[in-house]
Nucleic acid binder design. Structure first.
Lengths: 350, 350
DNA sequence: ATTAGCACTCGATTTTGATGAGTGCTAACA
DNA sequence: TGTTAGCACTCATCAAAATCGAGTGCTAAT
């Protein structure tokens, strides 16, 4: 069966009503709409068809209908197509300049959550494609060396390195030179074992101690590839009865708190994004119910967007809410922040 | 009225039973205990007294009794006094050496939560009494300078400083010298406006640009005085029906997520601790119900402990659970981690 | 001082019935 | 042939009523 115009109209009416109320919607309610000059009986027939086609379902006999995942999917796809039509009110969202990237991201997470009334998360950007800009070792204590590594985008990594024997200033100077000449300008992922051994050989005489320092620096460069995740608004889920149920809430909160799951997911989908086809629609993706990446989120919808601070520095943010979330508003919020991050960061750099 | 031996015994029995079951406990239950050779009627009389004295209360007529806050307080004080008597089973808790302090603390938070089945938090240590060890400015880009500040305990602070005009290498060298000679060895709280202006004067000629760099460094030193808070196990609260109620759960989760409230609290009580009388009992504090620092936690108990990584580097950790939490186990868990942090950190330093 | 016994209370659980929103189907209608 | 009025039926929800039982307080006997 095809989706006739009338069916579409009815389906849309059902979904919209359900988004607002969260209650199953019946034929009578729909028939009373102004531009719907049909009796409830006719609506019922159409609804019956829509149910057969899988767009809506009945929680139980003699209840109204609610959208199925397929129904939401239809609605979301349609809405995304002509999103300009509708304007939902948005608060002003202003991202304040922040000193540290982590502060900025925390702020964004908070903004996302407070503007949408759903739970939000944002990941730090991936940087393994970024180029190394600058390495500096300095002696902090007799047996302790501090390594500071600066990456494109002015991302910092530090590491304290304890050595078995003290290193004299001259050696440190040479090491600095060695590291910078070999590594500067390379992207993080280009730095491999081969390079490390090469450097160790060139360091020559000093053998052991120097070798271990080089290893430690390499570690610092490679480490921390797991993205940081910032979340906010977890308690918003209590606002939606269909999620506030104990076991569901517990699971959702767990996912938000156990950030490593999220972290993996983000890095997976980011790397797919890097290789694969670009996603139009500003990379906004909607996962409805069972489409969602987590088993424990089968009663939620997850809307994700990528952001890009500068070439290759991509991160992900997402909103987690009930299936009947205000997709339009969420998409807009995400887009707004995408843009703000973009411009803000470029300003900061200049 | 005095607490007779028998009353004490009964009270203790009531509390213990309630800690396990979470249900009001009646006279009959108690009378059946092995070493309690009394009829339920006698117990009832005693219970009636205990209620009058405020140690227990009835949720409603014809229900059993539950401990009041005063009852818990009695139990906790008593338990703390002779805690060695009882041995509750504890999992092995091993804190893995971690590269970054933040990783270590996250790990500890997780351990706390998973061992106790309550929610846990830990703050980063306060460092404003720590002495400055080392400052280094380096040029990263034409108009960008990186300041790295190392504090006793090898805590790092960094800041990227954008300048209006480029600074030449020589000036940077001089600035490094200036900063280090003036500030090294001072504790963070000793660095004040006077010192800053003094340095600016000595920098002399270079005026503007140099001045702003010094300001930026001073900022970096002073900033970030708000402690980081790491939480874990928020979803554990759903295991306790008396907290799993929607509105309560929401509030608790909110406090755990809005870390700045916690942060303030921690820094308050730490500074009190620094000035005031030392708390024996390894600084383990129990807040029962309404004694607790947050209005929204009036149905919880909060057990806090301070830890000390090295002289003056103190932080706080705490467990948040229902009033009927297993105080003994919690206290032990906290103490164990206190000790582990202590030894681990000292090893790491050596 | 202790306890057995009993009446009484009151939350929790189950039962029952009424209500009403909503459906599916059928027959009449345009 | 598409639309609709009408009706029997379903079933969640709600409230009132009935039942249950854990627990108490009191009294009188030991």
């Amino acid at each position: 069966m095809e989706l006739s115009d009338r069916k579409t109209k009815i389906l849309e009416a059902i979904i919209k009503n359900y988004l607002e109320t969260g209650e199953p919607v019946g034929s009578r309610t729909i028939s009373k709409y102004e531009d719907m000059n049909l009796s409830s009986a006719t609506i019922r027939n159409e609804m019956s068809d829509l149910e057969e086609m899988g767009y809506i379902l009945q929680p139980h006999t003699s209840a109204g209908r609610i959208p199925s995942d397929k129904g939401y999917r239809f609605y979301v796809d349609r809405m995304m197509a002509d999103r300009e039509k509708e304007v939902s009110d948005m608060h002003e969202m202003v991202v304040q300049k922040a000193d540290q990237l982590s502060e900025l991201l925390k702020q964004v997470a908070k903004l996302l959550a407070s503007n949408t009334n759903y739970a939000a998360m944002i990941s730090s950007p991936q940087i393994h494609r970024n180029k190394l800009k600058f390495i500096q070792l300095s002696k902090v204590e007799e047996n302790t060396i501090l390594a500071v590594i600066v990456v494109e985008g002015n991302i910092l990594k530090n590491k304290m390195i304890s050595t078995d024997q003290p290193l004299d200033d001259d050696t440190i100077l040479k090491l600095n030179l060695l590291l910078n000449t070999h590594l500067n300008g390379l992207s993080l992922e280009e730095i491999n074992l081969g390079l490390i051994t090469l450097m160790k050989e060139q360091a020559g005489i000093h053998s052991d101690v120097v070798g271990s320092v080089i290893d430690a620096v390499a570690d610092a460069i490679k480490a921390d590839e797991n993205l940081e995740i910032y979340t906010s608004g977890a308690n918003n889920i209590f606002k939606y009865p269909e999620l506030a149920d104990n076991s569901k809430a517990s699971e959702i909160i767990n996912v938000l708190e156990e950030k490593n799951q999220l972290s993996e997911l983000v890095s997976d989908s980011l790397s797919k994004l890097n290789e694969g086809e670009e996603n139009e629609e500003h990379g906004i993706q909607v996962y409805i119910g069972s489409e969602s990446p987590f088993e424990s989120m089968k009663d939620c919808s997850v809307v994700t967007a990528t952001y890009e601070l500068e070439e290759g520095m991509r991160g992900m943010m997402s909103i987690i809410g009930p299936k009947r979330m205000d997709y339009l508003k969420v998409a807009k919020t995400l887009k707004t922040l995408q843009e703000q991050l973009d411009t803000l960061y470029k300003k900061k750099q200049e």
